[in-house]
Design a protein around this nucleic acid. Structure first.
Length: 557
RNA sequence: GCCCCGAUAGCUCAGUCGGAUAGAGCGACCCCCUCCUAAGGGGUAGGCCAGCGGUUCGAUUCCGCUUCGGGGCACCA
């Protein structure tokens, strides 16, 4: 029995109490789904609910009296071993071993599907993240979202949503021109332009461009500058894509800003905004009246000199996403972009949408890196960049991804590079992966002993899993579907990581006291088989969770 | 000046929807390998949940103010 199933059972019991008059409230005053929690103290049972206290006020009754009525109704329900009233009106519930044990088989049978659900079925999400300028390597700020954004998308998808991962390529505007000018200068040995891009990667890129096509050096200056810009764009974008592939982050759509301008998307968006009545002209420029919707100042769409602003692209891009049918557009941005939030929401409102639904902006706080207690600075201008590639080279994909996902994105994060490479408990990724490897090892050893636990020769008997730590492990396994729904609804994949750590602990504790395999010449008994099912279930959940985070689930370490 | 985020153990941090004795890892100290990986398990010590008010049966959690950190406020991209 999972917490969700127990909540349903309690809900049914509550309705029966109301029908028979033992709890004096209206049916619509009952919670849609009663809160079922795992008490910290094992003496308080396997699960507890506070629903009696919540109903005390509407029922104008003592919470303990309500709890007593509910307890009467619940006791005798199949699968429930005992119900106790405690404290101010908590109801502590114990589940029969067999009712919990069946979950081991269910999880194994469901396989990769175990934990997936339909809580968000029918909802279409566009998850846009990283969206770096193609003018340099991906750095640490991008890396956080590369891991967390991907995990958010995975978690939404596991909760049943229809999800597209999207990377917006800022391939237009003065930064691109500056990039081209910087590459040309580097190739010709000229000084870097003012505010231009510096760093070793510019020189390397310039050399690569010349090596590909030496004729570029013979072009007239204006053509040459464009040629460097375009070649640099192509190479830099390819390098970013390559980097993200090695980081196991894959996008459904690479969306070019240029394409918005090429196919008239900007004009169409302007028309749409104009039709909604929020566009006006002042001082020769064209403005969007975002102050109609809580922005602190209006924004320019077309400058007095006729150039389109970057903001015009933003508007067009938003309209484009809506035209593609996404209900909710997630923007995963760095803390330095938080000024964007009101603006984007205002754009949504100006386009006639409800920004509460159509726009969701998640702000990721900065990532600092330390090594041996000293901060490692990242500064693109100075050319000292901590890149995604650097991080992966140093600590590996699994440790990098897991560590970045493990914390809520809205809390500032300090990575200690020295700690990340340690293969110990300082590093929770190894703790979780080790649990997976340890179970794999047990199952391998079972096979070596000739035990075919799945064959049915000895039937799986869920009632045998009655030890305290077997119950703890089963309840941890039962929590997984609920954790996914919570992580998806709150856009907080770190909950999955923290859950996996708890699950790993539950397994290690089980392993410490419950012998799985027969020793020496012991016969294979039903308890061994039942425990192997439990091991296989834990293995499956660990694998499903790690996969969702983009972290490997090794069979050996 | 205005806006966003944060403040929980010595350190790094968990703790949706308010609940019982506030948790984990690391660090410190003490135990446990004739047994499936000790990359593990058990235990001890360590807290004014930044401060002050409010809401209520009950607040680390919700609201307000204050203090201290971090970030942001372009006809830049």
């Amino acid at each position: 029995m999972t917490p969700g199933e127990l909540a349903d059972v309690i809900g049914t019991a509550l309705r029966e109490c109301v029908a028979s008059g033992t709890i004096a409230v209206e049916l619509d005053q009952l919670p849609s789904s009663p809160v079922v929690e795992r008490p910290k103290n094992p003496e308080h049972g396997d699960y507890a609910t506070n629903v009696a206290m919540q109903l005390a006020k509407p029922a104008k009754a003592n919470p303990r009296a309500i709890a007593a009525a509910l307890a009467d109704q619940l006791s005798g329900t199949p699968g429930i071993a005992g119900v106790e009233i405690a404290g101010p009106g908590f109801l502590n519930i114990r589940i029969e071993a067999a009712a919990q044990g069946v979950l081991a088989e269910a999880a194994v049978v469901a396989g990769a599907q175990y934990g997936r659900g339909d809580a968000l079925a029918g909802k279409r999400f566009n998850v846009e993240f990283i969206s770096a300028n193609p003018t340099g390597p991906l750095h640490l700020g991008h890396t956080r979202w590369a891991a967390v954004g991907d995990a958010i998308a995975s978690v939404l998808s596991a909760a049943g949503a229809d999800v597209d991962r999207e990377f917006y390529i800022n391939d237009r505007g003065v930064q691109m021109d500056m990039f081209g000018a910087s590459l040309r200068a580097a190739a010709l040995g000229l000084p870097t332009p003012e505010n231009g891009y510096r760093g070793a990667y510019i020189a390397e890129l310039a050399a690569e461009i010349v090596a590909e096509d030496a004729a570029i050096l013979e072009l007239p200056e204006d053509e040459q500058f464009v040629a460097f810009r375009e070649a640099g764009y192509r190479l830099q974008l390819a390098q970013q894509q390559d980097t993200l592939n090695t980081f196991h982050t894959y996008f459904d759509t690479w969306f070019s800003e240029r394409s918005l301008h090429a196919d008239g998307g900007v004009e169409r968006a302007l028309e749409k905004l104009r039709a909604q009545g929020h566009v006006y002209e002042l001082d020769g420029a064209v403005w969007l009246r975002t102050t109609d919707f809580d922005d602190d100042k209006d924004r320019v769409l077309i400058k007095a000199n006729g150039d389109l602003t970057y903001f015009a692209s933003d508007c067009a891009y938003y309209v484009n996403k809506r035209d593609r049918g996404f209900d909710t557009n997630l923007y995963l941005l760095g803390a330095d972009h938080h000024g964007y939030v009101n603006r984007l929401r205002a754009v949504s409102a100006c386009a006639g949408d409800d920004p509460e639904v159509a726009i969701e902006v998640l702000i990721g706080q900065l990532v600092k890196t330390m090594r041996d207690g000293v901060e490692v600075k990242l500064s693109k201008r100075a050319g000292e960049i901590v890149t995604l590639t650097d991080l992966v080279d140093e600590v590996g994909v699994d440790a990098a991804r897991y560590t970045l996902i493990r914390y809520p994105a809205d809390s500032p994060l300090t990575l200690d590079l020295g700690l990340l490479v340690k293969r110990s408990n300082d590093n929770p990724v190894y703790y979780v992966q080790y649990a997976h490897a340890r179970i794999s090892s047990v199952l391998r050893n079972a096979a070596d002993l000739g035990i075919d636990w799945r064959s049915g020769a000895i039937a799986f008997d869920p009632a045998l899993l009655e030890a305290e730590r077997e119950g703890e492990l089963l309840r941890a396994i039962a929590d997984f579907p609920g954790v996914i729904v919570g992580a998806a609804e709150l856009r907080e994949p770190h909950r999955v990581a923290r859950y996996l750590e708890d699950l790993a602990t539950a397994y290690h504790r089980f392993y410490d006291t419950c012998r799985v395999l027969p020793r020496g010449d012991e016969e294979v008994e039903a308890l061994h088989v039942a425990r192997l099912w439990l091991c296989a279930a834990a293995l499956q959940v660990l694998a499903n969770g790690l996969t969702m985070l983009g972290v490997s689930a090794p069979e050996r370490m």
